[in-house]
Computed example of a mutant assay.
Amino acid sequence: MRIAVLRERADAERRVAATPETVRKFGALGATLAIEAGAGEAAGFADADYAAAGATVADRDAVLAGADIVLGVQGPDPAALGGVSPGAWIVAGLNPLAAGEQGRGRVDAYAAAGVEALAMEWMPRITRAQSMDILSSQSNLSGYKAVLDAAAEYGRAFPMMMTAAGTIPAARVFVMGVGVAGLQAIATARRLGAQVSATDVRSATREQIQSLGAKPIFVESVAGIEGEGAGGYAGEMSEEYRKAQAELVSSHIAKQDIVITTALIPGRAAPRLVSDAQIASMRPGSVLVDLAVEQGGNVEGAVPGEVVTRHGVKIVGHRNVPSRLAADASALFARNLYNFLSAFWDKEAGRPVLDAEIGDAIRLTKNGAVVHPRLAT
């Protein structure tokens, strides 16, 4: 079983899909690893470290030659997979519902190339798959980094400080969307001494917010979202709920120093949570961090890859936030991939053999066709 790891080509992508740690673990299973030269450089992993762990370090063509599995953070270019074994697996984040050549177009190209594409972001949220969940591991880091980015842009201190010259009040931080990223943002802001509040359309998150010492801000009199809690994700909000939430948020957001938005709906554009009028109600010098900016943005006026100012408020729209913590993000991502493949490793076959529950959930292409029902045309 030959496993290939390529250097990521996407803009602003500094992560790598294997680390020296996981190279050694794959070696213990009996697999051989080939790493493209420079693949881990941006994340702080030198070629020499991979070689010492037992991997072969070579150019892209040599790495792909005879590869049975290709690991990636983002899916590799289908046109550049020459030399892989027939039916080779592509195991990466593939963003299959995105429009254009970086989404569905790439999935179709994988099918045409005869490879089996496995989308790790579609890993089912079940107990035995938690250690394989790339969305959770990367979102955790995003929530942490969002607070640090906010602190870097905010021209004041986070904690309350009592000095002989007077008292500095604690910063007020409002987190919108309490998934993995939101919970980590709450915890990080609390550790920095901020006064934290949070909201979500899922009522089940109220206790989670309170457990972290933050104040829950919820619409009380209106039903939540359709399919609330299905698969652990939020769904689309009803129009009635959307209006009630906007009213509640408008009154609360005007009092906040920092707002962090994390709301995403799988397969759809990110919901708009903060309007231009709400931004205008905030105090000049306040900060908004939009973690959903690459999926359309929760904040009106957020620009992917930029920090912009509207009405005196800074709006932070960094792309690929986990990649800005490349070493830790790579370590977690690589462990997700190892946990996935090792859980299904068949010693007699010398390769992983997927079961239906997980295999059918993440398999996009097989035998030259797109096979996932969510991609049926």
Rank of each mutant, 00 (worst) to 15 (best):
V70M: 05
L264I: 12
A254H: 11
P284L: 14
E236C: 02
L97C: 06
A12Y: 11
D149N: 13
D360L: 09
N320F: 02
G267Y: 02
P124D: 03
P352V: 11
Q278I: 06
A263I: 07
E236A: 13
I265A: 09
S137W: 04
L264S: 10
M132K: 08
Y50W: 05
I168R: 07
S250I: 10
I69T: 02
V201C: 14
E306G: 08
G213F: 04
A331H: 11
Q278N: 08
I134M: 13
I253D: 09
Y233S: 13
R190D: 02
S221K: 15
T377F: 08
T377C: 01
G285C: 14
G213C: 05
A329H: 09
S137Y: 03
G350L: 14
G72I: 11
G296M: 12
G177A: 07
G267N: 08
V259I: 13
E153V: 13
V180G: 11
T32P: 00
A270H: 02
R283P: 06
R7W: 04
V73N: 00
A269I: 08
S221F: 06
I315A: 11
G305Q: 10
E41V: 13
E36T: 11
R125H: 04
Y338K: 00
R60T: 02
G105C: 02
N336I: 09
G231H: 13
A349D: 01
A65E: 04
P304Q: 10
R335N: 03
V57S: 11
A119V: 01
A302F: 12
P352G: 02
G213P: 09
R374D: 15
V219T: 05
F158A: 05
A46Y: 07
N367H: 13
P322M: 01
V70L: 01
G317K: 08
F174Y: 15
L97E: 15
R104P: 00
V180H: 12
I358P: 02
E8W: 00
S251K: 14
L6T: 00
R104S: 13
G229T: 12
M161S: 11
A129L: 07
A263W: 02
R60C: 00
V249Q: 03
G83M: 03
G297L: 07
L364W: 07
R128K: 15
Q184N: 14
P76K: 05
R283H: 14
E116G: 03
M282E: 12
